[in-house]
Design a protein around this nucleic acid. Structure first.
Length: 685
RNA sequence: UGGUCCAUGGUGUAACUGGCAACACGUCUGAUUUUGGUUCAGAAGAGUCCAGGUUCGAGCCCUGGUGGACCAACCA
C-alpha cells in the first residue's frame, strides 16, 4: 500500500487540523460501534475501513464497541458474526467494548443529572409526549412532570430501576429546551423501561439508556478522539455535545462527532431492516446468501477481503449522498482474482464433441497453466480423450466472421490441447444438436514444440473430458434488484423490484477432475466464464460452486440482445444533480451550448449555432426574457440568447422595450460575434 | 412550513491559503494474447445546479434562487 499524502478526505483533513491545533498524536483513538442487531454489510465496510484505516494511518487504537442498549433487538449471534466479519476483513481492534459495560456509570451520571435538576421522570404516554413536544415549526409545551422536585424524581427513577413500573409507563428525560428548532433537544429520553433479558447483562437491568445518552458518554469513557458516524446523526451532534457538557472532566479528552455519507450500492438495498425483510420473506436463503450485500454474503460469493478494502478506498469518503455503481465492486474483485485465482476448465452447458481421428480409449495427460499472470504458479494435469464436452454456445453450424468459435469447416484450439476442425453434427428428432464431430490436427498439441503447435487460430475453447469430468452444481447470480435504487421510490416498495431471476442453478455442470481437490477458500477462474468458489453447501459427493463474477465480456456486447431488459437505465429521481439529465429543457440546452460559444470556431461554431437555432424553436419568450439580464461578461450566453431571440422574432414575437434594449446593448458590445448576431436580429425588422 | 447538511464528466471521488478541472470505474478505438480475460497504447465525455456580485482572475469567497438528503421512535 502506497500511502498518498497528496489529498486527504475531509475527515482526515479534520484530524490533520486538530493535530495542527495542538492535539497530541497519541491521543488519537477511534471506534467502530455497531449495534448487534443484524449482519454487517458493504456499507459498514466503509465505516470499518475508515475507522480502522485511520487507526493504521496514525498508528492509533481502534475499539470495537457493541452498542447494545436495546435488548429487544440484539442477540449474541450478531455479536459473533460481526466480530468474524471484521477479522475476516483483516482488522484488529484494540479493545472489545460494550455499551452495556457502562450501564452503571451511565446510571450514576443520570442520578447526577436528576440531582442538578437537569433530568426528570415523565409518566406521560408516548403519544402525549409526542404531542407535547410540538413540531419543527411550533414549539413544545412543558408536560405535567417537568417540574417535579428532585427528591420525587430520584424516588421515581429508583423505582423505575427496581422494576416497579411496567414497560412504557415511565421514562427519564433530560430537561433541555422545548422550543429548540432541533427536535432532539426537546427534552430527549435518557432511559426507558424494557423488561427483557439482555444478551450480556441478563436481568440485571430493566431500564436501558437510549442511544444519545449512551453514545457520546461511551466515547468519552473510552477517550475516543474522533467519533465518526453517518450523516443522519448530524442532528444528534448538538445533543451529543450537551450530554458531554454535563459530565465532562475538562482535564480529559473531549470526543468530537463528525459525520460522513453512508455508502450506497446500486441495484441493492443497504438498511438492516430491509435486509432483514429479505431474509424473513425467504427472498434470499439467509444473511449470507451470495446475493446479499452483507460481508458474509460477499464472502460466500467469493469476494476477498482485499477486494472489499480496495473498494472502500476507491469509493472515498464525503458528505454527499451517492450511489456507487456495482461495476466498481466488480472491478475490484476481478482485479484481485485475476492475479490469484487458479485457472481451470468447466463446462456449464455441455454438448458432446467427438474427435473422430483420435483413437478410442486413448487418454493423454496434458499440462495446464495454473495462472498465466503468475509465472511461479506452476501447472496442473488435465486428462484428454476422444469424447469431450464443450460449451453449447461455443458452436454454430454456420456463423459470421465475427464468431471466433467452432463452426463446420473452421478451426479452433482446444485450450492446452489440440487444434480441431468442425466436420459434422448429429441432431435429434427435434433438431437439437446432440454430437459434434470434428477432426484434430494431431501435431498441434500445446507445448509439444512442433510447428503445428504454435499455429495461430482465431478461437480457443475450454473443454472437459467426458469420462474424467466430475459433475457438480453451479450457482450463478444476477443482481438482486432490477432497479438501480430500489428503495428510492416513494410510491413503490423496494420488494417490488426484486429480480425473479437472480439465482440460476445449474445442476449438472462438468468440471475438470483437478477441482476434486478444491476447498472452501479456494478461488478459481473457470476459463472464459468467470470466477468461482466452492460453496459451503458442498457435500462429499456433490460439490457446489458459486459464481463470484463473470469475466469482462466484450463479446456479449456485440451480440444483438444479450441480456434481458434488466439493464434498462432506470434513472431515479433523487440523487445529486438538479436537473434530470435526459430531459433538459430547450432553454437550458441553449445556455449550455452558448456558454462555450466564444471558444468555438469553424465547423464547431457553425454546428453550435445551428443547434441553438433548432433548439430555439422550442423556447418561448417567457423563458428567454429573464436571460436578457445576463452579466455582461458572460458573452457566450448572451450570444445564444440573441440567436434564440432572432428565431422568436421570426416566429412573430412582438418587439418590446426589453427586447429593444437587449439588442441595443448587444450592438454596442465589444465582442464582435455578439455585435454580429445583434445586427442580424436588429435587421430582421 | 422551522432547522441542518449537500450540489464537480454516466458513476464515485480530487483540485493545499482563489490561477484556465485531475484520478478511478464505465464507454469507445487499436495492438498483443492458446481465456472475446489480462496487459499495453490511445480517444470521447464536465467548464463545476441556476442567476447576480467581489476579483486582473472563482468549482473554491459573498448574495439570492433551484434541487436533493436528514430531523418530530420509550430504534440505533
Amino acid at each position: 500500500m502506497t500511502e498518498e499524502s497528496a489529498s486527504l478526505n475531509f475527515i482526515e483533513q479534520i484530524i490533520a487540523d486538530d493535530l495542527e491545533a495542538g492535539l497530541s498524536k497519541d491521543k488519537l483513538r477511534f471506534r467502530f460501534p455497531p449495534e448487534p442487531n443484524g449482519y454487517l454489510h458493504i456499507g459498514h465496510a466503509a465505516s470499518i475501513c475508515l475507522n480502522f484505516g485511520l487507526g493504521e494511518k496514525y498508528n492509533a487504537p481502534v475499539n470495537l464497541r457493541f452498542d447494545d442498549t436495546n435488548p429487544a433487538k440484539e442477540e449474541q449471534e450478531y455479536v459473533d458474526a460481526i466480530k468474524k466479519d471484521i477479522q475476516w476483513l483483516g482488522f484488529k481492534w484494540a479493545e472489545e467494548c460494550y455499551s452495556s459495560d457502562y450501564f452503571q456509570q451511565l446510571y450514576d451520571w443520570a442520578i447526577q443529572l436528576i440531582k442538578e435538576g437537569k433530568a426528570y421522570v415523565d409518566g406521560q404516554s408516548a403519544d402525549a409526549m409526542a404531542e407535547q413536544k410540538g413540531t419543527p415549526t411550533t414549539s413544545g409545551v412543558p408536560g405535567p412532570f417537568r417540574d417535579t422536585t428532585v427528591q420525587e424524581n430520584l424516588d421515581l427513577f429508583e423505582r423505575m430501576k427496581a422494576g416497579e413500573f411496567e414497560q412504557g409507563s415511565y421514562v427519564l428525560r433530560a430537561k433541555i429546551d422545548l422550543s429548540s428548532p432541533n427536535m432532539l433537544m426537546r427534552d430527549p429520553i435518557l432511559y426507558r423501561v424494557v423488561k427483557k433479558s439482555h444478551h450480556r447483562t441478563g436481568n440485571d437491568w430493566c431500564i436501558y439508556p437510549m442511544y444519545d445518552w449512551t453514545h457520546g458518554e461511551s466515547d468519552y469513557i473510552e477517550q475516543i478522539s474522533h467519533s465518526l458516524c453517518t450523516l443522519e446523526f448530524k442532528m444528534h451532534r448538538e445533543l451529543y455535545d450537551w450530554f458531554l457538557d454535563q459530565i465532562i472532566d475538562p482535564t480529559k479528552l473531549r470526543p468530537i462527532q463528525r459525520e460522513f455519507a453512508r455508502r450506497n450500492l446500486s441495484y441493492t438495498v443497504m438498511s438492516k431492516r430491509k435486509l432483514l425483510e429479505l431474509v424473513q420473506s425467504k427472498t434470499v436463503s439467509g444473511w449470507d446468501d451470495p446475493r446479499m450485500p452483507t460481508i458474509s454474503g460477499l464472502r460466500r460469493r467469493g469476494y476477498t477481503p482485499e477486494s472489499i478494502r480496495n473498494f472502500s478506498d476507491l469509493s472515498g469518503i464525503s458528505k454527499r449522498d451517492s450511489v456507487t455503481d456495482v461495476s466498481l465492486l466488480e472491478y475490484c474483485i476481478r482485479e484481485d482474482l485475476n492475479k490469484t485465482a487458479t485457472r481451470v476448465m468447466a463446462v456449464l452447458d455441455p454438448v458432446k464433441l467427438i474427435i473422430t481421428n483420435y483413437p478410442e480409449g486413448k487418454i493423454e495427460i496434458l499440462s495446464a497453466e495454473n495462472n498465466p499472470e503468475d509465472p511461479n504458479s506452476g501447472t496442473h494435469e488435465v486428462p484428454f480423450s476422444r469424447e469431450l464436452f464443450i460449451e453449447r454456445e461455443d458452436f454454430k453450424e454456420e456463423a459470421g466472421s465475427k464468431f471466433f468459435r467452432l463452426t463446420l469447416g473452421n478451426e479452433v484450439r482446444l485450450k492446452s490441447a489440440y487444434i480441431i476442425k468442425g466436420e459434422s453434427v448429429i441432431k435429434d428428432d427435434a433438431g437439437n444438436i446432440t454430437e459434434i464431430h470434428c477432426t484434430a490436427d494431431l501435431d498441434s498439441r500445446s507445448g509439444s514444440g512442433t510447428e503445428a503447435s504454435t499455429r495461430k487460430v482465431k478461437g480457443t475453447l475450454h473443454w472437459v473430458s467426458i469420462q474424467h469430468a466430475i459433475k457438480a452444481e453451479v450457482r450463478e447470480y444476477d443482481r438482486l434488484f432490477l432497479d438501480e435504487a430500489p428503495d428510492s421510490h416513494e410510491d413503490k416498495n423496494f420488494m417490488d423490484f426484486v429480480n425473479p431471476d437472480s439465482l440460476k442453478v445449474i445442476k449438472e455442470a462438468y468440471l475438470e477432475p483437478f477441482l476434486q481437490l478444491a476447498t472452501l477458500d479456494d478461488k478459481f477462474q473457470f476459463q472464459r466464464l468467470g470466477y468461482f468458489t466452492l460453496d459451503r453447501d458442498s457435500t462429499s459427493d456433490q460439490m457446489v460452486f458459486n459464481k463470484t463474477v463473470g469475466l469482462r465480456d466484450s463479446w456479449a456486447k456485440q451480440k444483438p440482445a444479450p441480456t434481458p431488459q434488466n439493464n434498462q437505465p432506470a434513472k431515479q429521481q433523487n440523487q445529486g444533480g438538479a436537473q434530470p439529465q435526459g430531459q433538459r429543457s430547450a432553454i437550458n440546452e441553449i445556455q449550455k451550448i452558448a456558454k462555450k460559444y466564444t471558444n468555438l470556431s469553424g465547423d464547431k461554431l457553425a454546428a453550435a449555432r445551428a443547434d441553438i437555432l433548432k433548439l430555439a424553436e422550442d423556447v418561448n419568450y417567457e423563458e428567454l426574457e429573464p436571460l436578457f439580464g445576463t452579466a455582461a461578461k458572460k458573452v457566450g450566453t448572451r450570444i445564444g440568447v440573441m440567436i434564440a431571440l432572432g428565431v422568436l422574432l421570426n416566429k412573430g414575437q412582438e418587439r418590446n422595450s426589453e427586447i429593444d434594449s437587449f439588442i441595443k446593448i448587444g450592438l454596442e458590445d465589444e465582442n464582435e460575434q455578439l455585435v454580429e448576431e445583434a445586427k442580424k436580429v436588429d435587421n430582421k425588422l
